[in-house]
Design a protein around this nucleic acid. Structure first.
Lengths: 388, 388
DNA sequence: TTAGTTTGTCTATTGAATAAACAAAGTTGT
DNA sequence: ACAACTTTGTTTATTCAATAGACAAACTAA
């Protein structure tokens, strides 16, 4: 059965995690304050903090102000005890960051991808990562891991099962990278990474139930339920883009009819614009036209917003989340979408659910996914700390 | 902050729960076997088992067969250490069970409800529960709690926020019952209760991600994600019945257009049947006609099945569950629905998700919800045991 | 009868948390 | 300047759960 039974080591892991989290969240603070807020005994806190200091994860940073007694010794998390790499692998680009353990960006890189052939992508990706790693200052833990967001379905083993836009099938990305760099590697879907990035570093900070909707060529979604990424039975989920919203609607390449993303994506926008005669314009061109006062483009965007709202209403009715975060390239059209989305949502979602939901727009721009990727690497490092 | 810090009491609770669960799942079994399967030391198991015996939750039930050495002393969970009450409160009926702590039904009752007025419903419900309780044999723990499933939205405090079909708003059901009986009372939505019932006692035993679809007058849904009931940000969720599947479809009383339940519920069936001239027939009448070979009723049912399949495909794409369980009155039409549902699902859901999903039909019939309700009471009892 | 096996308890030890005492380092009022 | 009080953080003795290993009891097999 191999169950996790309770023993003293478990207690220590739990309490160490509590102390470390208190320091992460409220730094700088003293041992006394930690004891007070966590309920742990002062002696216990002292001992656990000493272990953390020995492990180079926490440091004393001078004394704080007295409130009528001995001055407290302030503690801080040593954010530069280690560094992590995050990669956002797109269809025609790759973006990478090197951050410290708090997610502060130390270095950032981006390059175009001119091929989708897995071997040649690896050929570009490997030196790309190596260059980021080379920029990390010396530190006790060094590079603690690599996180990667990819535009496709990923299984538990970090293999890309299927990435239609890159024509990838069963590409063992994690294995390839962890063999090259001999480091822990975390792979996940780009939308999941984006959801994580916004929850940790963006507009979704501290919200427990988030539906992240990335509107680009298609619609990708990441679900954060009860503060953690939800993955379905086989380790992936959230193909909300292929939700039917018109039972007898247009056929989709997925085999279904009337999928949401056929009506509310960048692709949908471009197609409908072409029908109106804007054959040569891309998203930027259309936004520029709308900006310049082109009414027919504006009303087209409004219609896209209405369809976005229909899908979002469905999501709200199903998940009753605290927040829906709209991200992806199309989120740049916010000024023309926002009202239509809001009106449609209010008309179509149940009142009880509307009470608690906020429609938000991604704060990190195109960095949502890459920041989520690096967060995957960082949190996996902390997880390993706890279980060893 | 009031965190749950780790201490020795916590270890003991965890390990006691592990031992108890081993006994619950594999009874009868010996101390030695428990030690072997859980990884806990023999001495530890002995001590914890002794505590459980002292608490009347476990008993020795003679010796087992020897495998070449001393005979093992077999242990069993004392299912009749206590009893629980489960209630399924419907719009025009109430159903109740009294079970032991394993969920074995000791007594079952059902009565019609002729009013939806909260006070008068209470007036019927109170003696109904009392009579069930009176049938419980003497036991160490007595009645450990009452679980109730209701057809409406329920908040954290066990108040019924809104039950449209009963015209209830803000009815403090838990408070009323726990005051009357001075017992722990758990209230939840009827679909959530049904999901729990099937997961614990029915076709969904041991499955971690379940979407339970109760098709009756409307469509209610209960989500079990990662082996536990998912509740949204405000403690309720799963209004999947009001998911849009026809963006410009029929108006629904919820304010939305084209809701799923307008096309795939008992109500939809009856309405469409009426249009075909079956004005006087109810569900039973229609099923009898189909049974007798009425082709137009059969093709009507098939169409309902297709729409059911559309919604289920959406659910599968979003949640990637291990199982979808179809329940409720319309599940009796299974012979005419099954193929249409399966075909539609296979055509419309993504292949990657189809690999892992089973479409199942409720095993407990109309007892899903009442068994889930009693499970709520039982599991809350075990939870309290752990935290005290 | 003897040797080996299995079960379950007993004993001494380990290690984590804790309360209480305490030392160190501060503030405040007169 | 000084006594009285506060706050911080460490030290000490104690408690409690789990554990390894010894052990007794109960059984099988040959």
């Amino acid at each position: 059965m191999s169950m996790t039974t309770g023993d003293q080591a478990m207690i220590k892991r739990i309490n160490t995690a509590i102390v470390l989290e208190a320091i992460l969240r409220h730094a700088p603070l003293s041992r006394a304050k930690i004891s007070e807020t966590t309920g742990l005994n002062k002696a216990t806190v002292s001992s656990l903090v000493q272990d953390l200091i020995d492990n180079k994860l926490v440091a004393e940073t001078g004394t704080g102000a007295s409130s009528g007694g001995r001055k407290p010794v302030m503690l801080e998390f040593v954010a530069d005890a280690g560094y992590a790499v995050g990669i956002d692998l797109g269809v025609n680009y790759m973006r990478g960051v090197l951050t410290d353990l708090r997610g502060n960006v130390v270095s950032e890189r981006m390059t175009a991808l001119t091929t989708v052939d897995p071997d040649r992508v690896f050929g570009t990706l490997r030196p790309f990562i190596q260059q980021l790693m080379d920029e990390a200052p010396d530190s006790p833990f060094g590079i603690v891991g690599i996180g990667v967001g990819v535009p496709g379905l990923v299984d538990r083993n970090g293999s890309v099962l299927f990435a239609p836009n890159m024509d990838w099938r069963d590409v063992p990305l994690r294995e390839a990278l962890s063999r090259t760099f001999n480091l822990p590697v975390m792979i996940d879907n780009e939308a999941n990474a984006g959801a994580l990035g916004e929850q940790r570093f963006g507009i979704g900070r501290g919200i427990s139930n988030i539906v992240y909707v990335s509107v680009g060529i298609g619609i990708g979604t990441g679900l954060i339920l009860q503060s953690r990424l939800y993955k379905g039975s086989s380790g992936f989920s959230g193909e909300i883009g292929h939700m039917t919203i018109e039972a007898g609607g247009k056929p989709c390449r997925c085999g279904n009819l009337g999928c949401w993303e056929l009506y509310a994506s960048e692709q949908a926008l471009l197609e409908q614009a072409a029908e109106l005669g804007y054959k040569d314009k891309d998203l930027d061109g259309l936004l520029a036209a709308a900006e310049a006062g082109d009414e027919s483009v504006a009303s087209l965007l409004k219609r896209i917003g209405e369809y976005l709202g229909i899908g979002i209403a469905n999501i709200v009715n199903v998940f009753n989340p605290n927040a829906v975060i709209i991200a992806g390239r199309l989120s740049r059209a916010r000024p023309w979408l926002e009202e239509a989305v809001k009106d449609t949502l209010e008309r179509r979602a149940l009142g009880f659910h509307l009470r608690n939901v906020n429609v938000l727009y991604a704060e990190l721009g195109d960095r949502s996914a890459v920041m989520g990727a690096v967060e995957m690497a960082i949190s996996s490092f902390f997880e390993r700390l706890k279980t060893s």
